[in-house]
Design a binder for these strands. Structure first.
Length: 482
RNA sequence: GCCCCCAUCGUCUAGAGGCCUAGGACAGCGGGUUUUCAGUCCGUCAGCAGGGGUUCGAAUCCCCUUGGGGGUGCCA
């Protein structure tokens, strides 16, 4: 049997890292098993639908490196892959259950249900629908429906006994049927609820394994009941642990970035995020930390998914990203760096000096953890420093510094402009002045970049041209005193 | 409240009853190195939530407690 899995997001906002991780695990499993990975859009909530969210979702999935075998943009044997365009199918299935007596119409108003919930809460009773319409006479139900009275369709769930299902990461999970109420299948507006649409589609699309977030566990027994009502075999369930914020608790914007797009803006590479996410709640069983997409596919298995929820450790992500940055070629990073520089208003400069872009990236990529960091700590490649790091000034801008630099200036005007020549110039200067290397090195870096850290000084000087270096030293002499 | 799930260093994890004096990675701390470190190398600290069982033997199996998470919608 071919494995068929799906990622079925609701396009209501940005792609959360939790959702991305679910998509990733489904993808890994499909690729590992030689199966199919489908993307299905669950847009059944009219009130929350958001067009741009769908666009962003698809863009972010692709950016992460995921591709689907069936779904939006490419179609497949079960088109359409948008639930909002499959309404008839759900209606037909709802009618089927109705005619079987496995579901019933409920004419209760939302006011009545609100009141009911309020009373249950007040009396500390377990909340849930009281099955008011469950035993309504079918002819009356038909008559009221025919008269156009608003209603929903509910599943007639068993009131005793128990429902057990097997979860691949946790084993058997059991629910007493009496704690499960009669869930809504079809809403007043004729749209299906998640539950109906999801079950019908998973069956129609021949989904074999449902890998989804932990938060769906409580719905699963109801889904199993639905499968039974239809007389269908349920798929294998596998609930993925949730991802928590660094300090514990729900991951949110407040507690650091939460969406794939946010990490892209911070300059995390897609492969690094992919790698990191794969290792959250799953491990290959050995001590590998940095793994290629192919290695992840090859060693992936559902059995090694952890049941425990995992905190999203951004620091470790950045470390991993730094590793990918070191490994990455300069060329591969150029487009993204260019984009970020453009965003910072340096588009014209970048266009005018492509060779500077190459130097910027080459000199900084191995010492940065994120692309945005690489960009922001290298702005001196593009414009004169507008301030000088205070601590560094206090430490390295000594009383004798200005004179030293002034005596260096003429040599800088004439020395051959390459790192090796610059270094020997500095070495000999140190010699003749009878000073320490650091006394010349640090002030130069400070004057030229405004920062106390960065790439090797002589490579940096070489990258900036002679004019710029001399001018910046003169500016610093003016601004820092001397 | 009720239902369900979970529990190894601060964090991600290895661990399938004896290979565990519990291994690795990130972070932290300490040192080396380089002209700088927000780079790099080396070293180091740190954990089986608590209590009962089962067993010759428990991080591993069972029960309870505690703690954390999720669900309890005509949201998904």
């Amino acid at each position: 049997m071919t494995v068929r899995v799906r990622f079925a997001p609701s396009p209501t906002g940005y792609l959360h890292v939790g959702g991305a991780r679910s998509a990733l695990f489904n993808w890994l499993f499909a690729r590992k098993m030689g199966g199919k990975f489908l993307l299905r859009i669950e847009d059944t909530d009219q009130t929350r639908y958001n067009e741009s969210a769908l666009h962003d979702l698809i863009r972010d999935l692709k950016w992460l490196g995921l591709d689907w075998d069936e779904g939006p943009e490419i179609g497949g044997p079960h088109v359409p892959y948008y639930q909002s365009r499959r309404l008839e199918l759900y209606k037909r299935h709802s009618d089927l259950l109705l005619s079987k007596g496995a579901a019933y119409r409920c004419f209760c108003t939302s006011e009545r249900l609100d009141e009911l919930r309020r009373r249950q809460e007040e009396q500390k009773l377990p909340p849930g629908y009281d099955r008011h319409c469950r035993d309504m006479d079918v002819t009356e139900s038909d008559r009221r429906a025919a008269a156009g009275e608003h209603h929903v369709v509910r599943l007639k769930a068993p009131m005793s006994g128990r429902t057990v299902f097997r979860d691949l990461v946790r084993g058997d999970i059991e629910y007493q049927n009496h704690v499960l109420d009669d869930l809504v299948l079809l809403k007043t507006d004729g749209f299906p609820t998640y539950h109906l649409a999801n079950v019908v589609d998973d069956h129609e699309m021949e989904i074999t394994h449902v890998l989804r977030g932990d938060e769906w566990i409580p719905s699963t027994p109801r889904h199993v009941l639905l499968y039974e009502a239809f007389g269908w075999e349920p798929p294998v369930f596998c609930h993925l642990p949730v991802i928590l914020a660094p300090g514990g608790g729900k991951l949110s914007k407040r507690k650091g970035a939460a969406s794939v797009g946010d990490y892209r803006e911070k300059g995390i590479l897609p492969h690094a995020l992919f790698n990191f996410l794969a290792l959250l709640g799953w491990s290959p069983g050995d001590e590998r930390e940095k793994m290629t997409q192919q290695e992840l596919v090859d060693s992936f298995s559902l059995e090694r998914i952890m049941p425990k929820s995992a905190a999203f450790d951004e620091t470790k992500l950045e470390w991993l990203n730094g590793q990918y940055l070191i490994e990455s070629s300069v060329e591969a990073l150029l487009p993204e760096v260019r984009r970020m520089l453009e965003e910072r208003g340096l588009g014209a400069d970048v266009a005018a000096r492509p060779e500077m872009l190459e130097r910027h990236v080459r000199l900084l990529k191995d010492r940065s953890k994120r692309i945005a960091e690489l960009v922001d700590t290298g702005l001196y490649f593009w414009r004169d420093p507008d301030s000088y790091d205070e601590k560094a000034v206090a430490k390295h801008w000594q009383p004798q510094t200005p004179d030293l630099l002034r005596r260096l200036l003429p040599d800088l005007e004439t020395v051959a402009w390459d790192a090796a020549s610059l270094e020997s110039l500095y070495r000999s200067k140190v010699e003749t002045e009878g000073i320490k290397f650091a006394e010349l090195i640090h002030p130069t870096r400070l004057a030229v970049s405004g920062l106390p850290f960065g790439p090797g000084l002589f490579e940096l000087l070489e990258a900036l041209d002679r004019h710029t270096v001399v001018a910046r030293i003169q500016t610093a002499l003016g601004r820092l005193g001397g």
